[in-house]
């Protein structure tokens, strides 16, 4: 044994790309942490991450890396980092990050993503929300008229 060897794990994205990361980074995900505990495997672990593509996984791991060493930073420093991290994600990546954080059980990332989406919704009219998130207006004209009549002043 030469020095202290860092424990590494290999994560495999849904499109087959392998990411070799420190165990403590991967364990930011409760899903991975549980998988490692259950397996009891020591070295050369390969963990498939279903439904998360390599692009998304690389972004998720950037988050995990930062947060795994979060104790070294001031609290407001990590908050600032989080803010920049989620700010540079476009809407598509934001969705993928949310889904990944959910399937991989990374609570902090899930909260960060949900907060970002909520801030995008805040203060917008129904039409603006539809355009931004590409949501189809699936109300029948009758239903829409009813909502409009009931809450007319709010929607103007």
């Amino acid at each position: 044994m030469v020095g202290v060897k860092k424990k590494m794990v290999t994560l495999v994205s849904s499109d087959g790309v392998e990411f070799v990361v420190e165990k403590r980074v991967a364990e930011q995900s409760l899903f991975i942490k549980n998988a490692l505990n259950e397996g009891g495997v020591e070295e050369k672990v390969m963990i498939p991450i279903p439904k998360v593509t390599s692009d998304t996984l690389s972004s998720v791991l950037e988050y995990c890396e930062k947060h795994a060493s979060a104790t070294e930073f001031q609290e407001n420093e990590i908050e600032e980092w989080d803010k920049e991290y989620i700010e540079k994600a476009d809407l598509d990546l934001l969705y993928y990050l949310l889904q990944a954080s959910y399937s991989m059980s990374i609570m902090g990332l899930m909260e960060l993503g949900a907060k970002k989406v909520a801030s995008l919704i805040r203060g917008k009219s129904p039409q603006e929300i539809r355009e931004l998130f590409n949501i189809k207006n699936d109300f029948t004209p009758e239903q829409e008229e009813e909502i409009r009549r009931e809450m007319q002043w709010n929607y103007e």
Partner: peptide
Amino acid sequence: DLVLLRAVSR
């Protein structure tokens, strides 16, 4: 915001 969201889609 929730009241407005209600009018976005079914």
